[in-house]
Design a protein around this nucleic acid. Structure first.
Lengths: 206, 206
DNA sequence: GTCTATAGAAAGATAGAC
DNA sequence: GTCTATCTTTCTATAGAC
C-alpha cells in the first residue's frame, strides 16, 4: 500500500535558492498559523504548501517553535495596526473588526494568529512579548491620560474578543449584524477608551 | 524531558462503580479542558487523573469529541453566570474578570474553556451552540432596548478577550492592574452595554 | 467494570545520499 | 540545497483477557 500519494505539488520554478525557499516557508507558515493556530498545523503541511519537504523547515528555522516565533515577528512587524492619525484610530480599529477578510492577508490577521495559537503555552510565551512590543507599546504611546497601559490592554482585549466570536466561534449575532451600525457602536466604545473621558473623575483618593 | 514514569495515582476507594467512574472522568475532563484546551490534553491524561485508564473514557463517552461535548454542557449548565439581579450584573461580570481563580472551579472557567478550545474546529462547533444557548440567550433576555443580540455578543467578547489577555497570554498591564480600579472601569463599560444608554437613540428604560 | 496490549495514524526531528 | 527514509514519541481508539 502506498503510504501517502501526496496531492499535486505546486512545483514552481524555484531551483535551489536558499533565500527564496526560506521566504516561501515563512509565508506558508504565516498563513497556516493564522488559519489553524500553532497546534492545528504540522511542519509537513507547512513545508508542502511551500513546495518543499519538512526537512527544510527545520534546516532553516531550527524547530517548529522557532519557525512560529519568526512568523509572529514578521506578522506583527509589518502589520501597521497602530500607524496613522490617532484621531481616526478608533474608527480604523472598528473597521478592522467589521471588515470580512476571507482568504487574503489582512491587518486583522495578527489578531487571529494570536488567539488561535494562544492555548499552546510555548506559543503564548512567544506571543506575550510580541504583543507587548508591537501592539501595547504603540497603542499606549498614542494615548493620553491616566492608566494608559490598562486602557490599551482593554482595547486589545475587546478587539481580539470580537474577532474570536466572529471568526473563530462563528457567532451568529455578530456575523449577521449590520456592518455600519456595529462599526459605529464599536467606534464609540473605542473612542471612550482611547480618550480619558471614559474614566471615573470621581475623587478616588490614594 | 522525563518520559513520565508514573506519577502518584489518587487511587481512592472506588471499586467498580460505573456511575462514579463516569462522573470522575467528567470532572477530570472539565478541569483539563479548562486549563489546557481541547488540543492540549489527551484522553490518557484525563483518564489518569480520574484514576482509570483511557479505555474507560471511550467506553463511557464514545470518543474524545463527545467527552468534550459532555464537559462543555456540564460546565455551562451549572455555571449560573447570568443568574441573579440584573441591576448588579455589570458588577458581577466585572468581578469575574478581576478575580483570580488559581485552581478551583470558578464561574469564569467556562470562558477559559471556550477560548482555549476554540482553535480546534470541532470544538468550536460544539462551543458555538452551547455559547448561544447558555450565554447569549440568558444575557439577551436580561437586557432591554435595541440591538440586544449584538450588544450581548459584544459583552461576551469583551469579557472573553480580557480573560485571554489576563489568563492565557499573561498580559502584564492587566495582571498588575489595581483590582478595584480595573473592576470599576469594567463595570462602567458593561453598564453602558447592558443599558441602552450607550446606544444612539431611545429613552431610558429602567 | 476495568485492565493490558496493541493497532494505526500522525507528529517533530535527524541521518545520510545525491 | 534538497531529498528519501527512518527514529521516536504521542495520539485516539479497539480487541480481548479477567
Amino acid at each position: 500500500m502506498s503510504p501517502k500519494p501526496r496531492p499535486p505539488i505546486p512545483k514552481v520554478s524555484r531551483p535551489r535558492n536558499a533565500g527564496a525557499t526560506r521566504e516561501a516557508i515563512l509565508q506558508s507558515a504565516l498563513t497556516a498559523f493564522v488559519r489553524q493556530g500553532y497546534d492545528g498545523v504540522g511542519v509537513r503541511e507547512i513545508a508542502h504548501t511551500a513546495g518543499v519537504t519538512a526537512v527544510l523547515v527545520n534546516r532553516y528555522f531550527g524547530s517548529k517553535e522557532r519557525l512560529f516565533a519568526a512568523a509572529v515577528e514578521a506578522m506583527f512587524t509589518d502589520s501597521g495596526l497602530f500607524a496613522g492619525d490617532p484621531a481616526t484610530l478608533a474608527q480604523r480599529l472598528a473597521a478592522l473588526v467589521v471588515t470580512r477578510s476571507r482568504d487574503d492577508r489582512h491587518p486583522s490577521d495578527p489578531l487571529l494568529l494570536l488567539l488561535r495559537s494562544a492555548p499552546n503555552p510555548r506559543a503564548a510565551a512567544i506571543l506575550r512579548q510580541s504583543i507587548a512590543s508591537h501592539c501595547e507599546q504603540p497603542l499606549k504611546s498614542l494615548m493620553r491620560g491616566p492608566k494608559r497601559g490598562e486602557r490599551a490592554a482593554i482595547i486589545l482585549a475587546l478587539i481580539v474578543g470580537l474577532q474570536l466570536f466572529r471568526k473563530v466561534i462563528g457567532n451568529k449575532a455578530l456575523a449577521d449584524a449590520n456592518g455600519t451600525s456595529l462599526s459605529a457602536d464599536l467606534t464609540l466604545m473605542l473612542e471612550r477608551l482611547i480618550d480619558i473621558s471614559h474614566c471615573t473623575e470621581s475623587p478616588r483618593n490614594h
